[in-house]
Write a protein that binds this DNA or RNA. Sequence first.
DNA 1: CGCTGGATTGAGGCCGATCAACTTCAGTGG
DNA 2: CCACTGAAGTTGATCGGCCTCAATCCAGCG
Lengths: 230, 230
Amino acid sequence: MHTTTRPHFICNDCIFSLACSEDENSPIRKSTSLVKQYRVLKPREVLYLPKNKFQYLYVVQKGAIKTYQTEADGHELIRGFYFAGEILGYEAISAGFYPFSAVSLCETLICEIPYSSLLKFLQNKILLQENILHSISQQLNIGVYLASSTADQRLAAFLIDLSTRLHLLNTEAEFILPMTRQDIGNYLRLTAETISRIFSRFQKRKLIKINHKKIKFLQFTSLQKIAEGL
Amino acid sequence: MHTTTRPHFICNDCIFSLACSEDENSPIRKSTSLVKQYRVLKPREVLYLPKNKFQYLYVVQKGAIKTYQTEADGHELIRGFYFAGEILGYEAISAGFYPFSAVSLCETLICEIPYSSLLKFLQNKILLQENILHSISQQLNIGVYLASSTADQRLAAFLIDLSTRLHLLNTEAEFILPMTRQDIGNYLRLTAETISRIFSRFQKRKLIKINHKKIKFLQFTSLQKIAEGL
DNA sequence: CGCTGGATTGAGGCCGATCAACTTCAGTGG
DNA sequence: CCACTGAAGTTGATCGGCCTCAATCCAGCG
């Protein structure tokens, strides 16, 4: 499970860097670092399942992860997508177990943060305390656009949200949708067909260019207006 | 704004009790207690508005509060309801200001927790740290049932959720809906008419007894089945 | 090469929104 | 006390957006 090389591009902004030595070879790191283990996940590899004992928070270093729960009718309800630099697992703190499943969408690299060690480490680290509260607070505001009334609004808002979270160089850059139409639909509470239809409609209106998983914004501001319901 | 009497029924379970002396008359309390101020809100009194500077977390001692944001089209989108013992304001930690409005639904009593004092107080209080993380984590799992597909499912799940959060003595007890049909609709992403119709339908099926704001469960388990989509 | 899962496109149906009329209730002032 | 008022709630008729079901297309891959 260990990787020999350690990625750095995310670490600079990571709230746990205060507890995680930057120097891979430092002897100090081995004893004090919060992050003892990295994991590489192949596409569609399970990170955790519902009712699994909560032990770790995870930081996505590279790749993408979806969390979801399976409804009584077998329908898959997506709770969230997590990309490079984002943290998952907070929902499990209160219950003591993960309330749903987490699966990688593509090859993904993650750091494991043992929660019990983190709690011990937290004492006296007022800055880290603040940063963690800040970070969880952010997650309370995720996906507000799920409440948007029309399907066009929700999908436009989703695309804009994605584009910011995938660290694009600019808003006109082409990027890859790591998830399927079905995943998007399960997240936005729409069907895959509806997602497909709206993509086609957006393309006809020259708002985006889309070809399977490759997507590119042509009129970012128009999309924003749609997202806002104007 | 101060009240002379101090309520106790909530305090025993309050995560901030560690930082909040139980004894109203103790001289210690005045200097060390986190909670310096209580506030009584009349019905429909504003607690905070969007963009207001974030200074306090609030604990509801008695009554009910709704948080909401107003969409571009003027539609009021309800983010959450908060009842006795529940905490609101966490969403503001990351932004530094409250991202939406909070208004009381009926006469309501709240405690103000100054966030900056709380942060200072947190140091070395590992139990309090844990409790707060636990408490925010819970809020990440609120309102999952908003994703339920049908209107009947969402409303049934909402009623069940309400009944647990209002501290009813038993599941057959009659209780008061503190919010309007419109509020419920704005929370569940349905119209007030739809809420009214479903209430009528549930009543015809003898699942509930409802008369304006007074409601009573007649077949709790049937409601649970509806909520689960069975 | 054919297989398989994902994506696209079309036809038809249903659930919840919209619009509108009416009732009930709480609050106010004569 | 009752009349008046406006907000909240109920109920009905109609409409439209999204779902369902189905056929076809396409890319990736053994």
